[in-house]
């Protein structure tokens, strides 16, 4: 597998599509920790997250010929995991609402800006206290280091909406985290 270490994801996909199934193991190895971390942050259950990630890799393999190698493999596989996670959350009826009295549009709510490091700490602690619609872009931006453009591709929402959701999520998390102290 050493010889594949320098190949891009998209090059590996093309090799798998050409018939070399074993190369898919390299893609699984590359993405397993990232996808598992992301799924665990959304689903709050390591076992369910592992099932979601396994199903993601299987669905990605089955549909590999449908992947457009001019696009990013990373966004594509995160998108599959997003769909899996959404299905599982619906199945387990997990619905979190904004805290009582929270007005996301109110600019007076928690004016203090946190550093990125502090925000990441807050995300680890409070991500499961906000609605999934807001938790997802925050997890992708702060925990997975994805750009707005990539998050837009994964969640299929405009980049501007990504920014709005992240800001609202941060405000909601600050409020929730403060209440928890």
């Amino acid at each position: 597998m050493e010889k594949h270490a320098t190949a891009t994801d998209e090059e590996l996909v093309n090799q798998v599509r050409s018939g070399d199934k074993e190369i898919y193991a390299e893609l699984v190895r590359r993405y397993e920790p990232k996808l598992l971390r992301y799924a665990s942050s959304l689903l709050n259950d390591r076992e369910i997250a592992m099932d979601a990630v396994q199903d993601t890799f299987i669905k990605a393999y089955v549909n590999l010929n449908g992947f457009n190698s001019k696009r990013r493999f990373s966004s594509w596989i995160y998108r599959i995991l997003h769909n899996e996670a959404m299905n599982l959350l619906k199945k387990h009826h997990r619905e979190v609402k904004f805290p009582e009295g929270f007005d996301a549009a109110d600019p007076n709510h928690f004016e203090v800006e946190l550093s990125r490091k502090e925000t990441i700490k807050m995300v680890h602690k409070c991500l499961d206290k906000i609605p999934i619609k807001y938790a997802e872009p925050v997890a992708l931006f702060y925990l997975e280091d994805k750009s707005y453009e990539e998050i837009s591709d994964i969640l299929r929402i405009p980049a501007g909406t990504v920014g709005v959701r992240i800001n609202r999520a941060k405000k909601a998390m600050r409020m929730t985290c403060q209440e928890m102290k």
């Binding site: 074993e22 898919y24 193991a25 699984v28 190895r29 397993e32 920790p33 598992l36 390591r46 076992e47 592992m50 990630v53 396994q54 890799f57 299987i58 393999y61």
Partner: peptide, 12 residues
């Protein structure tokens, strides 16, 4: 409990 190595092996 499953671990991450199992996951790659199971898929492959």
């Amino acid at each position: 409990p499953r671990n991450e190595v199992d996951l790659t092996r199971e898929v492959m």
